[in-house]
Amino acid sequence: MNEFLSFFERNSVDGTHVVFMMLFSLGIALFHTVIFSGLYNLKFPTWLFFVLCPSLIGLAFLVHPKYALMIFLFLFVSVFLFGIIGMIYSMILKNKEDRIAKEKFDRLHNISKTPLSKKLFGVLMMGGIIWVYFYLAEREQLKLLLLIIPGLIFLNRFFFPSNKSKFLKLQAVLPTSKIDSIAMGMVEVEGDLEEIEPIISPYFNKPCIGYYYTIEEEGPADDDGKRSYKTIFTELKTGIFKIKDETGVVTVNGEGLEFYFDRIDNQRGGKTRHSETYLKNNDYMFLIGYASSDNGNVIIKKENPKGIFGIANPKSISFRNKYQPLLISFLTTLFFITLIIIYIILN
C-alpha cells in the first residue's frame, strides 16, 4: 500500500497535465455513458459523465496534485471494470427475460415442462461424453473417437429408431388393404379424405381435417446472408374424418395421427415465422393405423401411446420404395468403407 501511495507522491502533476487529463477524460466519459446506458439500462442525462469526469479530476487537483493522477487512473480502469461487470449483468438479465418469455409462451401454448428425469439423463449423457474425452486424452488415444462417434450414431439409429422410421418399415411389410375388406389390427389403406367436422387452425384460422403448426425463431445469418430458423413450438391436431377408395369408406379417429409428408400450405415470415400444413378434404393419402370395431363399425385409430399411426403422400412413398434398396446398399457400403479408412488411420 505504501508503495502504491509513494508512486503518486513521485508523479505529481502540474496544471498542463491536468488540462490534458480532463480533455482525455471526455473519451472516458463517452465509454461510461455507453456502458451505463446500454449494459446497465440506466436512465440519466447524457451530459452527466462529460461533466462529472473532468470535474472529479479538477477537484482532486485542487485538493492535492497527486490525487488528480489517482482519479484519472481510477476512471480509466473503471471503464474496463464496469464494462466487464455490465456484460455479466446484461447476460444474467437477458437470460432471466428469456426464461420469463419462454414460461409465458409455454403457458400460452400449454407446453409441459421438460421432466426432471429427462434433464438428468441429458446431464449424465453430457458428463459421460466429457469423461470419455478426458479418459482418452489422458491415454493419448483421442483418435479412438473416430470409431466411437460413428458407432454411437449407428446404435442410436438401430436401437432407438424414430416414429417415422418405424412407420416406413411397417409400410414396407404391410399389404395395402381394400376398405371393404379391412381386418382388425394394424392396417394400411390408401384413398381420398372426407371431412366430417372441420377444425380451425390456430394461426391462419383455416378450416381443415387436421393441421401441423410450427413457430420458428430467426437465427443469425450465414456468410451468404441467408437466415436460419430454429423451431420453438409445434402443434399437431387432427379431428375425426373418413378415408375412401373404390370399395368403400372407413372412419378415422385422428387423435395422435402424425404427418409424414413435407408440405407448407400457409406461412408468414419475420423475426418469428409461423407455418401451417393442413390435411384437407379430397387429399389423396396413404394411412397406417389400428383397425378396431366400434359398435359394429370399423374405425381406424392409434392403438396405444407408442403405436404407429401416421399419414403420408402416396407419391413420396412410391418414390421411396423404388429407390430405398439402392440407398441402403450405398449407405451400407459407405459405412464399411468409412470403418476401413478409420482403421487404417488408427494404425
Rank of each mutant, 00 (worst) to 15 (best):
I264M: 05
V187D: 09
E97W: 14
K104S: 11
I179T: 05
L26S: 01
G122H: 09
P65M: 00
M91I: 06
Y343P: 01
K104Q: 11
K280F: 05
T46I: 05
M1A: 08
F335W: 12
M125T: 11
Q171I: 04
S275N: 08
D223P: 01
E9H: 08
I179W: 03
T247H: 01
S90I: 08
L120E: 10
V34K: 01
I182T: 09
G15A: 12
A137S: 13
K230M: 12
F4E: 05
Y290A: 02
F259H: 08
S329E: 11
I232P: 10
E188Q: 10
E9W: 03
I288W: 01
F80E: 13
N11M: 00
E140S: 10
K104C: 07
I129S: 13
S165C: 08
F261Y: 14
I209K: 06
L236N: 14
T16M: 07
I337W: 15
E303H: 13
F61Q: 02
P115F: 15
S78Y: 03
G191K: 06
L174M: 07
G122T: 03
F44Y: 14
F76T: 00
Y260H: 10
F241A: 02
P150D: 10
P150C: 08
S112Y: 04
N41I: 01
S12L: 06
F309A: 09
L334E: 10
K271G: 09
F82L: 13
A221L: 13
N304S: 11
K94Y: 04
K301S: 13
V123G: 04
T114E: 15
I28Q: 02
N95K: 14
G151I: 05
Y213F: 15
R320K: 13
T251A: 09
K280S: 07
I130H: 12
L334T: 06
F49W: 12
L26V: 00
K178R: 11
M1G: 12
E194C: 07
V51T: 00
V34L: 09
L5D: 15
D180R: 12
M126W: 13
L146W: 12
L193N: 03
I35A: 07
N11I: 01
I199W: 06
D224K: 14
P175A: 02
K244D: 05
S177M: 04
F159P: 05
G191F: 02
L168Q: 14
S201V: 05
E255R: 10
Y203K: 10
R227K: 11
I328D: 13
E103C: 04
K280N: 10
F154D: 08
L59Y: 15
I57E: 01
D223C: 03
G122P: 03
G239C: 01
K302C: 06
L331G: 03
D283C: 02
D245H: 13
L144T: 09
L136D: 02
G239M: 03
M285Y: 00
T214E: 15
S275G: 00
G191A: 03
E188K: 11
V34C: 00
K242A: 10
R107F: 08
D98S: 05
G307P: 07
Y213E: 15
W131A: 11
I182P: 06
G256L: 11
I100Q: 15
H274F: 12
I337F: 12
V189Q: 06
E216R: 13
N297C: 02
N41H: 14
E255T: 06
L145E: 15
L155K: 04
S162K: 10
G307C: 07
G127Y: 15
E140T: 03
F241Y: 15
